[in-house]
């Protein structure tokens, strides 16, 4: 008789184990996402993917594996148009994601209104990287057109990042007293007169400036400049914040046609939304992107150089489509300053 309760507890325990294991085995799906991004976001998304996988596991029990692809922003957009099955794209400029709508018909034209802040969860801006001690005494855009100052920036024809640099210089000239489109073009022309090498991408320009020792100032995205100063034992370079710069907006979007085909729309949308959460914003800030969330931004404010005036492409240039046509298309202002 004494053995009865004992037997019962053993049975109950066995049932419990069976119950638990079958409960664990039930859903536990594995979802795969492909995030097609541009070059310098590799580390950012490595961190973010881990955080999102943990969040998704806790929320749904599913395992999500996010694969990343990195390269020049324009090249990446072309790959997606030509059939790379990206679930989400996180590129350097809206123009490249626009192409998914206009060239590929993969996403609706109003994609940028689907998420807050122009679908840009984090931003950056254009700053100057100069050699230690700032020997050429460079403090603002106006110093870049002085004779004898050598400026390194990639070609805006081939580099998305370089287009932000170009527009920032243009915006500065435009916002000066008496500034006009004609003045701005003359200013930018003078600036590019001081550019000895037009690398095809931002990486190339950084190598030219840092490794080859060419140029007095490198126009760079803030996140990359801060990282460069942090990594290079900070003895060789320093950051100079100009009086005005542009808000560089690297936007994100779900690729509708692909997520509907893969059945991954829900998780892909959540993946992008989570970028706006405190966790996502924190990770962006840790990788030196400016977070949108005011609390997180306040907490990380100290790591960003103080730029008195930040303008947006929508306010000054009327959006990317217009900016691209005016400045970077054939016979645009960039072609004109090189005499065409």
């Amino acid at each position: 008789m004494r053995s009865r309760p004992h037997l019962r507890s053993v049975l109950a325990g066995a049932l419990l184990i069976v119950g638990l294991s079958s409960a664990a085995a039930l859903p536990a799906a594995t979802v795969k996402l492909l995030n097609v991004s541009y070059d310098p976001t590799r580390e950012l998304y490595e961190d973010y993917n881990k955080a999102f996988a943990a969040y998704w596991k806790a929320k749904t029990g599913d395992t999500v594996i996010v694969n990343q692809s990195h390269g020049g922003s324009g090249k990446q957009a072309r790959s997606v148009i030509e059939g790379l099955e990206a679930d989400v794209v996180t590129l350097a400029l809206a123009y490249d994601i626009d192409a998914l709508a206009t060239q590929g018909g993969l996403i609706p034209a109003n994609w940028q209104g689907r998420l807050p802040n122009n679908s840009t969860p984090y931003t950056s801006t254009v700053v100057f990287l100069v050699r230690k001690g700032n020997p050429k005494n460079i403090h603002d855009w106006s110093d870049l057109v002085r004779p004898g100052v050598s400026v390194i920036t990639p070609s805006p024809k081939t580099s998305g990042g370089a287009r932000w640099n170009y527009l920032a210089a243009w915006a500065f000239a435009l916002k000066q007293p008496g500034g006009s489109e004609a003045n701005a073009e003359a200013f930018v022309k003078k600036l590019y007169h001081n550019v000895p090498v037009l690398d095809s991408g931002a990486r190339g320009s950084t190598v030219t400036f840092v490794e080859r020792g060419i140029g007095d100032v490198l126009l760079a995205w803030e996140n990359e400049a801060v990282l460069a100063v942090k990594e290079s034992d900070s003895a060789k370079f320093e950051i100079v914040a100009p009086s005005l710069s542009i808000v560089a907006e690297p936007p994100v979007s779900v690729v509708d046609q692909n997520v509907d085909q893969h059945g991954t729309r829900k998780v892909a949308e959540e993946y992008l939304k989570y970028l706006y959460s405190k966790v996502g914003q924190e990770i962006a800030a840790k990788h030196f992107y400016r977070p949108r969330d005011p609390d997180v931004a306040a907490r990380y404010a100290k790591q960003f150089p103080d730029i008195p005036q930040l303008v947006t492409i929508d306010a000054v240039f009327g959006g990317w489509t217009k900016a691209q046509a005016t400045h970077f298309a054939d016979h645009g202002s960039f072609d004109r300053i090189y005499g065409q």
């Binding site: 090249k75 037009l198 095809s200 190339g204 970077f328 054939d330």
Partner: peptide
């Protein structure tokens, strides 16, 4: 691309212009 300097009219090779056109879709 790395050694050319890629200055328009001076040291810009034809394949680079092809890439530049592709960047504009």
């Amino acid at each position: 691309i790395f050694i050319a300097g890629n200055m328009p009219m001076k040291s810009e090779i034809a394949p680079l212009l092809i890439v530049a056109k592709l960047e504009q879709y």
